[in-house]
């Protein structure tokens, strides 16, 4: 499940009013989430949750569900 918090950060960063984000949604399915905006979304998440991703962790993420799980695992540590 994608949390409301993560969804809000993503929509906010990409200037979207509403977009249905599911576990299996990938970045290129979300309007405006291109290779340049990608880093802005990652930075916004890091700032909001006060966490730090490693480069390889982000490269491994295949969809937003996996991104959510990565964030959850960071918050637990």
């Amino acid at each position: 499940m994608i949390s409301e918090r993560l969804k809000k950060i993503i929509l906010n960063e990409l200037n979207l009013d509403e977009f249905d984000i599911k576990d299996e949604t990938t970045a290129n399915q979300v309007p405006g989430w291109d290779s340049f905006n990608h880093i802005n979304v990652i930075l916004a998440i890091e700032k909001d949750y006060n966490i730090h991703f490693k480069g390889l962790e982000i490269l491994k993420v295949k969809n937003i569900g996996e991104l959510q799980r990565l964030i959850d695992s960071k918050l637990q540590n």
Binding site: S35, F36, I39, I42, L43, G55, L59
Partner: peptide, 21 residues
């Protein structure tokens, strides 16, 4: 190049914001 060079570099330089990209 986008997947294997640009993306890792972009992550590395991300604190420089748009200059990093």
């Amino acid at each position: 190049l986008l997947d294997y060079l640009f993306k890792p570099l972009q992550m590395k330089f991300r604190s420089w914001r748009v200059w990093g990209s």
